Simulated assay, not measured.
Amino acid sequence: MKESITRAVFTLALVAVGSLSLFAQNQFPSQIWHKGSIYGLDGQTYEGLVKYDLENNLVQLKTETISIFPASNVSHFEIHNESNDGLRSFYSLPYSPNGDSQTPIFFEVLTEGYDITLLCREYIETDYKDTGTKGVVGAIPSNGPKTIRSNRVAFNYYFFKDNEIQKYSLKKKDLFAFLPGYEEEVNQFMRKNGLEHDKRADLLLIASYYNELNKN
């Protein structure tokens, strides 16, 4: 039974993972137009080329012209991942990142289940390299300016559990706090398949496996 659950999880989840690193240099998924659809709160569906901006919680639609939709006017939107023809879904959900009043922002849904749903928010992270010199004769040691080394796509992860969106700290002990009742089974699943607690594809598989266990 557990082996069949594992096979089902890998078959379903790997389709949704996709590759976010196959784009041209300096071209990230949020910077290009994708075939997709936007579902408005007015009941209308808008189809065309879609570009998303999670930092400002906006989504753009290109047809003959370009239209801009804030998260407050959108139920959800979908884009086709050009790297593997998969579908990525983003929902507008009320959230309060600073403990203030909640406001609609976009979350990507990685996997959804009866007990938990795994969400994420994508951003571009910049790594810096220290180019300062030290120990120069006649000069005061200084860290100097910093030079951009590289940019990469990164993610913050959240669990929708108990009717609340809760941010995941990327600490393994906190992961198991979101997955009660099956710690031994999940631990074994992670060890057997070499899964980490802080990687996008691995988290998707772990959450999917937990939801499959909870069905039985």
Rank of each mutant, 00 (worst) to 15 (best):
C120M: 10
H76E: 12
E164Y: 04
D42A: 10
E108H: 06
G132H: 07
T65N: 11
M190G: 00
P94F: 02
E212D: 06
S4W: 03
D100E: 12
V50G: 07
E125D: 11
S92F: 05
E3G: 01
Y210E: 09
S75R: 14
N151Y: 09
K167C: 11
K167N: 07
L14G: 01
K161G: 01
I206H: 05
N143C: 05
F176L: 09
K134V: 05
D130P: 00
I148Q: 13
I79C: 01
E122K: 02
H76G: 03
R200Y: 15
E112F: 01
Y114T: 14
E78H: 05
P104V: 02
A201F: 06
N84A: 05
A201I: 02
N193E: 11
D198W: 07
I5A: 08
N187Q: 11
K173R: 10
P180V: 12
Y52A: 01
P70G: 07
T111M: 02
K2Q: 09
P97L: 14
D53V: 00
S4N: 09
L179E: 00
N163Q: 13
L110A: 02
K51Q: 15
N143E: 13
R7S: 12
A16N: 13
K199N: 07
K51I: 06
N156L: 06
S208P: 06
D198E: 13
E3H: 10
R88I: 08
K146F: 10
A201G: 14
S75A: 11
P141L: 03
S142F: 03
F10G: 06
L119W: 00
C120F: 00
I148S: 08
K35Y: 05
N156E: 14
N84M: 03
C120Y: 00
E82T: 11
F28Y: 15
F155V: 11
F90E: 03
G36I: 03
S19G: 11
H80S: 10
R88E: 01
K51S: 13
G99Y: 10
Y157K: 08
K2T: 13
P70D: 07
S142A: 10
A154Y: 04
E164M: 14
E78P: 05
T131F: 04
E47V: 08
Y168K: 11
G181W: 09
Y210F: 14
Y114R: 07
R152Y: 06
A24R: 15
E55W: 01
L170K: 15
P104Y: 11
W33A: 05
K129P: 00
V15F: 07
N57S: 14
N98S: 08
S37L: 05
V137M: 07
N98T: 11
T11D: 08
K35A: 07
E108M: 13
K62R: 14
A207N: 04
L119C: 03
M190C: 13
L20I: 02
G144N: 05
L195Q: 02
Q31V: 00
A154C: 06
I116R: 03
D198C: 04
V17W: 00
D174T: 03
L22A: 14
K215D: 04
L14P: 02
I148D: 04
S89M: 06
E185C: 01
N211P: 09
L87T: 11
E183D: 09
F77V: 08
Y209M: 00
A16D: 12
D198A: 07
V136E: 15
E185M: 02
Q27A: 08
P180H: 05
R152I: 02
S89V: 14
N163F: 15
G138K: 08
N26Y: 12
T126Q: 10
L195G: 03
A207S: 15
Y123G: 08
E183Q: 13
E108G: 08
